[in-house]
Design a protein around this nucleic acid. Sequence first.
DNA 1: AAGAGGCCCTGATAGC
DNA 2: TGCTATCAGGGCCTCT
Length: 286
Amino acid sequence: MPELPEVEIVKQSLNKIVKSKIIKKVLVNNRNLRFKVPKNFESYLKEKKIIKISRRSKYIIFEIILEQYLIIHLGMSGTIHLITNNNQKNTNLSFYQKKDLPQNHNHIIFFFNNFKIVYNDPRRFGFVKIFKTKLDLLNYFNKLGPEPFSNSFNTQYLKKRFKNRIKNIKNFLLDQSLVSGIGNIYASEILFISKINPMKKVKNLTVSEMYKIILNTKFVLKKAIRKGGSSIRDFKNIIGSRGNYQKEFNVYAREYLSCPSKRCESKITKININNRATYYCKNCQK
DNA sequence: AAGAGGCCCTGATAGC
DNA sequence: TGCTATCAGGGCCTCT
């Protein structure tokens, strides 16, 4: 599920549900996530009031006490489920009803007064971390490039970063130290709209191509957020949930299908770039 | 130092 | 049906 738009949707939903609520209890069923869940995790969070929830890149950030934080990264397969105690229909689209809670891999459960929040993650590439000062949190995010929507993601910046670099642009868009939050789906989509070949070496990009990448990154991610993110592969399990952006894909998962550009007769091509599937139109993207 | 590749893990699907 | 191989939305680590 989770690239920037999906994480943003989860964050927004969490803000509606758990902001200003007190965590009554935490249960960890499996500590073996990407990183070990710390021993003091449960006791630290117990009886703490959540001040607010924010997002940096693909990380969800809970401010627990003033300037102390819990972060959650969903990895490849992490999902967050709201389980309510009553049968009242939950109108918040990003959450699940009880019947939709998977049987397995419910690794962490946060108990509140009238509901619980469940962290589920089959592949366990996700993780949680606690930071007890704002400085620790900022240091942790130090390596991350700018948020795609920030003004510091501009052509001057890309010119500097791309100079003399032979890596291809698809790979570079996935590099979180360049710009943070883009994942494998949106990288292909951004390059299609920008009409740039994913294999193109960044040192050969013109300034106008960089400009297109910047604008289209913002455009694609914003539109995906507006559509509630992309829901793929777990369709059957997602009820009461959500995203519609997968209907807007131009190239991702569309191998052999027609290029959506007007007057283009080509089919979408799938290639591997650093072992990640990459989709593009050979005719439109030069 | 930059860039490529392996690896962590489970589940769905394709092919034999 | 039942096996094996391949592939998934991420990111850290190691090697050259």
